[in-house]
Design a protein around this nucleic acid. Structure first.
Length: 839
RNA sequence: GCCCGGGUGGUGGAACUGGUAGACACGCAGGACUUAAAAUCCUGUGUCCUUUAAAGACGUGCGGGUUCAAGUCCCGCCCCGGGUACCA
């Protein structure tokens, strides 16, 4: 051993030892209690693993090692969420196959992970893009396709039980008990005899309305110029980020998963989970259970009614208008001829606004009168029907009853369009109903016929009773949660294992799985707008039938990966009963907050589904969840001063932070130019026609303590070779801001440099030292020195000046034992509490 | 907009149920060791006033409130991060 702490020697030595002796490989062992520690697996991006990823990994690694020492049989695996958009985008730009990009990125991730010295059992690695893995993702999809949700048993069952029901009892129509709450399509009632005489096509069409994986129309962001569907992410300011083309919302036939059937179980299941309250609260809000009533409003001079959903049937007498969504299916029929142009113009505009836009933009009130009236079911009054974009097509019934006096958005709408505001709840006497609404639930009904005098809660019950008696509505539970659109018009994902025979979708037979992602010449949609898989030549099931051309979304593979780690090489089942009955579920799951309602809801859904069908023994994927805070990037900026003469840029240089004021404008122009001339030995005038300050992200790796390394800056990009500067005391000072850590912001710090300089142990210690694991914080490498020094001191406790390992064998005295045991207690408690900061 | 987090020195953060705000560390300043530097060790370090010290005043995003006592509890705001259904 050398004389001082040398991580360059210590770390590779032990990492090699672990590797050669397979120290961290585990197998089921009934003699020991099991413990399953899981990290949310990473998407292998081109920028490599940044310092944010290991934060959670290090914490779980400490915990996994601790649990092992405590005698548990610890499963601690790692793998990759390897399908996804970025690799596909890259493929579109460069022609490089996403599989190649992914493989390359993945290698790099593995190297980085190895360097940090994690105790993963690498023999269990999974990759979602590997056919041996996605075979089972596809298999689960087929199970979903072959299942329906039985609301009486409150669980999924094979579709054959529904077929049996149809064959023996038929279907009683939209109020049938087999419906899970109006989420299936409305089919007319049929008898068993009728069912048996239906054509195959008709039967299949009906079944599709009940399957947990089904085909239906849904709105997507369609970009005609790119011929593809875009995520909200890919849209900036209403146009495509790539190319800046217009985007419209378009109805498209899409595969969806009936997650809404599980809404109640997803909600009630939260109570037993040891997850943070904030995550559980987010999920509750996302599921958005609300109780109320659906009420039918007859449309005057027409033979149909509009169904509205309301949580406040007690305010029915306060209705002064109905508002329907621009997407409402009855719109065409009810709009009055004299209003048709105006309405259609509005609808075309409103439909193409994104939902988020429509919900967030509360200040801009818009809507248009359809020219038609509904009849108030109790008063018989005429109620004007409006189209308004604050009503969303996908939520509730796509129509609301406007009660301006007691709903703030209805109020804003009524006030803007001068619609009557009718008070029906007694609030505070001084409340001015022309100014604002009273949304509270305290008070008694007034001006409300049979509801007068009742408190809000009683009035709700009474109103529901009344509409039910009159046959114009019923009590109803509504969920904000929508079925999950599952099809993607993309290449780099799991092919949906469906083929079409005479236009009817059928699942690929299990023995033919996996449906391998075919090769294509380009990763773009076809000329006639089909997804990229439409380019695959001779790609037919059994050589005869067309395959489904859409692929699965990013979250498909991640919705069940925790199961695959238990038995990752099994070719006969997604996981063997043996393995899953031993490892059961994740005991500790660590991951980012950003997955609160996406991944974490879907994985719970799939887990419940697989449980229902008897494939796994647990209804929840993870008992305990810890959200590691996001490590944000700490971006550095430089300021370029561009000076124009007319449209021509005459001069351009970089000014240090101090020359700009708080608002990042030039503080004092003459002083700046004086300094510029002095420092660069020039004679620039300052009477330019236009002077602009351009703020640019600069690579944080060439900035230290906010001081820019000028030499490296000039080498950073070709156009900067001859860059000119105005410095402060010989230095260029940058500004900084907290942003998401990403390649495009030049603020990615990778663990590699830190490990090379200080070693993995210093990195690990420092990441834990940064602050509580749950808290988000920007990355800042300042401070790592102190941690490194701590390790050196620790090392010196055990090695003398010549580098000899020195311990003596003397029995410890009482005081020493006391310290030892206090330390053991403290360390054990801190680790159990994930208080990994204090040393 | 809505939902979930967060805001404490120059910096990361500590303060468990309301009870000495700023632990620990970084940085900075000074000193010791050294021919010198690095490394290491020691001392100081919230801000302001003050030659210094003592003493004092002010201090946990902003404005109010409750309390003997507020970083912590209540009300109203501001700012930052995440999510908002095809990013993962």
């Amino acid at each position: 051993m050398s004389k001082e702490y040398k991580h360059q020697e210590i770390e590779p030595k032990w990492q090699a030892y672990w590797n050669e002796n397979k120290v961290y490989e585990v197998r089921e062992d009934a003699s020991k209690p099991k413990y399953y520690v899981l990290d949310m697996f990473p998407y292998p991006s081109g920028a490599g693993l940044h310092v944010g990823h290991p934060l959670g990994y290090i914490a779980t690694d400490i915990y996994a090692r601790f649990k092992t020492l405590k005698g548990f049989n610890v499963l601690h695996p790692m793998g990759y969420d390897a399908f996804g958009l970025p690799a596909e985008q890259y493929a579109i730009q460069t022609g490089q196959h996403p599989a190649i990009t992914t493989e390359k990125n993945l290698q790099r991730y593995r190297e980085q992970l190895n360097q940090i010295g994690f105790c993963y059992d690498w023999s269990r690695e999974v990759r979602t893009s590997d056919p041996s893995y996605y075979k089972w993702t596809q298999w689960i999809f087929i199970q979903l396709f072959n299942s329906w949700f039985n609301p009486i048993l409150n669980k999924a069952e094979p579709i054959s039980t529904l077929v049996h029901l149809f064959e023996t009892e038929g279907f009683k129509g939209s109020d049938d008990t087999i419906l899970t709450g109006g989420m299936e399509f409305d089919f007319p009632a049929f008898t068993a005899a009728q069912w048996n005489n239906f054509s195959e096509a008709n039967q299949q069409k009906i079944l599709l309305g009940f399957r947990l994986a089904y085909l239906s129309e849904a709105y997507v962001n369609w970009c005609p110029a790119l011929g593809t569907v875009l995520s909200n992410d890919e849209i900036k300011d209403g146009v495509s980020e790539r190319g800046g083309y217009p985007v419209e919302r378009k109805l498209m036939n899409q595969w969806s998963l009936r997650i809404t059937a599980y809404a109640d179980r997803l909600l009630s299941g939260l109570d037993e989970l040891n997850w943070s309250e904030s995550i559980k609260e987010s999920q509750r809000n996302w599921i958005g259970k609300s109780q109320g009533a659906s009420v039918l409003f007859e449309v005057q001079d027409h033979k149909f009614s509009i169904e509205v959903f309301t949580t406040r049937p007690d305010t029915l007498f306060g209705v002064s208008f109905l508002a329907i969504a621009p997407e409402h299916e009855m719109l065409d029929q009810l709009v009055d001829a004299s209003h048709i142009d105006e309405v259609m113009a509005y609808v075309n505009l409103a439909k193409n606004r994104s939902e988020r836009d429509r919900q967030s933009d509360v200040k801009r009130i818009s809507g248009v009168f359809t020219g038609s009236y509904a009849v108030h079911p109790f008063t018989g009054n005429e109620v004007p029907i409006w189209v308004a974009d604050y009503v969303l097509g996908g939520y509730g019934t796509g129509a609301v009853m406007g009660v301006p006096a007691h709903d703030s958005r209805d109020h804003a709408f009524a006030k803007y369009f001068n619609l009557p505001i009718l008070q029906v709840i007694e609030g505070s006497e001084r409340h001015n109903y022309q100014e604002s609404s009273y949304d509270g639930k305290e008070g008694n009904c007034i001006n409300s016929g049979f509801l007068n005098g009742l408190g809000v809660k009683k009035a709700i019950k009474r109103a529901i009773q009344e509409v039910e008696e009159r046959g114009i509505g019923k009590g109803k539970t509504n969920y904000r949660l929508r079925d999950a659109i599952f099809g993607r018009q993309r290449y780099w994902g799991e092919p949906i294992p469906i083929y079409y025979k005479e236009g009817i979708p059928y699942p690929v037979e299990e023995k033919d799985l996996p449906v391998i992602l075919p090769e294509v010449d380009k990763f773009l949609p076809t000329e006639n707008g089909e997804p990229p898989l439409g380019r695959a030549s001779n790609w037919k099931y059994k050589g005869l039938y067309d395959y489904e051309l859409s692929t699965m979304p990013g979250w498909a593979g991640s919705s069940w990966y925790f199961l695959r780690y238990m038995d990752n090489k099994n070719d006969d089942a997604l996981v063997s009963p043996n393995a899953v009955s031993y490892w059961k579920q994740v005991d500790l799951y660590m991951g980012g907050n950003e997955h609160a309602t996406g991944h974490l809801l879907y994985v719970r859904f799939w887990t419940k589904f697989l449980f229902d069908l008897g494939f796994i023994p647990e209804v929840e994927p993870a008992k305990k969840l810890i959200n590691q805070g996001m490590i944000q990037g700490r971006s550095n900026f430089v300021y370029r001063i561009d000076c124009f003469e007319g449209d021509k840029k005459e001069l351009s240089f970089f000014a240090s932070r101090g020359f700009l004021d708080e608002n990042e404008n030039i503080k004092n122009l003459p002083v700046l130019f004086q300094e510029f001339n002095k420092q660069n030995n020039q004679k620039a005038r300052l009477d330019f026609t236009k002077i602009m300050v351009v703020k640019l992200n600069v690579d944080v790796n060439i900035v230290k303590d906010e001081v820019l390394n000028l030499t490296l800056f000039k080498q950073w990009r070709d156009d900067l070779n001859n860059a000119l500067f105005v410095l402060e005391n010989g230095n260029y000072h940058c500004s900084w801001e907290v942003e998401k850590m990403s390649k495009s912001k030049w603020n990615v710090v990778t663990p590699d440099d830190i490990i090379a300089q200080y070693g993995a142990d210093t990195l690990r210690l420092y990441e834990m030292f940064l602050g509580p694991i749950e808290q988000s914080k920007p990355w800042n490498t300042q401070g790592i020195e102190g941690v490194h020094r701590f390790l050196k001191k620790l090392w010196k406790l055990f090695y003398d000046k010549e580098g000899n390992f020195c311990l003596n064998q003397e029995a410890p005295n009482k005081a020493e034992l006391k310290i030892l045991h206090k330390t053991i207690k403290k360390v054990a408690e801190d680790i159990e509490n994930f208080s990994l900061i204090l040393l």
